[in-house]
C-alpha cells in the first residue's frame, strides 16, 4: 500500500477541447492551432503578459499547467523543492527551431532573434512552469517517438519512492506544424479527488480518452 502513488488531477488539450479531471472545461472547434491556445488563455482570463512572448510550445504548456494547478494547487501543499517537473514530447522544439533557421538562412535578410533562439530548447517550457509557480524540484525533459506511460510511470514512481520528490507535474506537451497535444497530470502519494492509481494502464486510459 505504502508505495502506491496516485494521479491526483489532469488536464488535456487537443482537437479544440480542454479537459480537466474528466470534465470538458472549454471547447472551441473553430480555432486552429495557436489561435485555439490563445483563446484558452483569454477564456480563462489568465493575466500573465509573458504568455505572449512564449513560443507556441510554451503557450500550450502554460495554459494546460495553469488549469491543472488551478484544479489541484500542489504548490500550496508541498514545498517548492519537493515538486518535480518531468515532461516529454516527440518533436522537441522543432517548431521554433524552424523559425530560427528561417531567420538565418537568407544572408540578405539575416536577423537571428534572441527571443526566438531562447525557445529552441524543449525544457524552456519546464522553466516557464517553474517560474510561474515558483517550483524548484527535479527537472527533466525526455524525448520519445510516442508518449511512453510505461517509462514515465516507472521513473516517476521511483522518484517518489526514493523521496527525491513528493509530487510530480508530468506528462506530454507537443506542438509541431500546427498539430498540438498536451496531457499533463499530477502524481502524489495522496489519492486526491480522482483516486486513480498511478500505473501505466491508468495513464493510457486517461491519455486515450
Amino acid at each position: 500500500m505504502e508505495n502506491k502513488n496516485y494521479i491526483s488531477s489532469y488536464c488535456a488539450a487537443k482537437n479544440g477541447e480542454v479537459i480537466v479531471d474528466h470534465t470538458i472545461s472549454y471547447s472551441e472547434k473553430t480555432l486552429l492551432s495557436v489561435d485555439f491556445i490563445k483563446s484558452v488563455y483569454k477564456h480563462f482570463q489568465f493575466n500573465y503578459p509573458k504568455f505572449y512572448k512564449m513560443d507556441h510550445l510554451c503557450k500550450l504548456a502554460f495554459v494546460t499547467s495553469e488549469l491543472l494547478l488551478k484544479s489541484n494547487p500542489v504548490t500550496q501543499k508541498y514545498s517548492s523543492e519537493d515538486i518535480a517537473i518531468i515532461i516529454s514530447n516527440s518533436t522537441s522544439s522543432l517548431e521554433i527551431d524552424t523559425e530560427h533557421q528561417n531567420t538565418i538562412s537568407d544572408k540578405g535578410n539575416y536577423f537571428p532573434s534572441p527571443a526566438i533562439f531562447v525557445y529552441t530548447l524543449s525544457n524552456i517550457l519546464i522553466g516557464e512552469i517553474a517560474i510561474r509557480n515558483s517550483i524548484k524540484g527535479e527537472n527533466t525533459f525526455f524525448i520519445f517517438d510516442k508518449f511512453d506511460p510505461v517509462f514515465m510511470s516507472s521513473y516517476i514512481n521511483s522518484l517518489l519512492k526514493s523521496g527525491k520528490a513528493k509530487c510530480c507535474i508530468t506528462g506530454w506537451v507537443d506542438f509541431y506544424e500546427n498539430k498540438y497535444e498536451s496531457f499533463l497530470y499530477t502524481v502524489e502519494k495522496e489519492q486526491g479527488t480522482l483516486k486513480i492509481e498511478h500505473t501505466s494502464e491508468q495513464i493510457k486510459k486517461l491519455y486515450n480518452n
Binding site: V118, I126, G127, I131, I135, K136, E138
Partner: peptide, 18 residues
Amino acid sequence: ASSNDANHISGPSRTGDG
C-alpha cells in the same frame, strides 16, 4: 540531483539558490 531556480528562462539566478 537536478533543480530549477524559477527565476528567468535565460538569466541565471542572482542568488544561486537553485
